[in-house]
Amino acid sequence: MTLILCVWVLLPIYLLIVNSLSTPEEVIAFPKRFFPSFNVASLEFFAGFSGIVKALQSSIIVATITMVLSILIGAPAGYALSRFEFRGKTTFRVLILMTRAFPLPLLALPLAIMFIRTGLDDTMFGLALVHTMLALPFSVLITFSLFSGIPIELEEAAWTLGCNRVQAFTKVVFPLILPGITASAVFAFVISWNEVFAASVLTIENRTLTAFLLQSLDVSPMHLKFAGGFVLVMPALIFIFAVRKYLFSMWGIANR
């Protein structure tokens, strides 16, 4: 089972790497080679593609702001949903999901007009706000279930031992849910990283890598599609790799 899952995930990535390291002739040839010829011409093309470094920077910055904002806003909302009873709680939960009910192409026009008028237009922060809105439902619902999984008795015990509400949270609950927070942060990061439409409408100078490349890639020749895909996927993979220990600890695998 593990093997199938590994192949499921790794095979496409492997093929992506093989094809980005092949010559154009090898990419369209069939049957496919299993070992690349380590031709870096396609990748070199992107290294010299004007604006790509700046776009990569923008992508990382926007995704990071999105990640931080969605945790800062989402986690308290998730905590409130799991710990407190208040009027309209169910409605609130549905409303959170509703933010995903409107397709972005529909929202983009009014958003862009508002952004141009308020000066948020073409800023990474403005785009990050939009991406945060997209990521929030996930971070609220993920943290909600995380907090619900931690018995209130643990917090109550901390209170009886002299902690106030905030201390109980930071000293007892927070360490327990850290892996989950990481998971929802990864989610937010990936949502922002992958988003194209808002990014290409709301930013010009500060385009994210996805907006910058994706619309061009689907009409580019095969070998550049692979190389471009490689350029798009790698940073996100590296990021997930970097935070893997927080994810592993959530699934009960020993901290490494």
């Binding site: 026009l109 862009a112 007009i113 141009i116 008028r117 073409d122 409408v201 100078e205 619309q215 061009s216």
Partner: peptide
């Protein structure tokens, strides 16, 4: 010159937004 190609959808949306806002890039 900053050459930016895009899909017709975002192309038109951005243009319409600038026209509506009365201020463009």
């Amino acid at each position: 010159v900053d050459y930016q190609p895009s899909d017709p959808g975002p192309w038109l949306t951005r243009l319409n937004a600038e026209l509506e806002a009365g201020k463009g890039t």
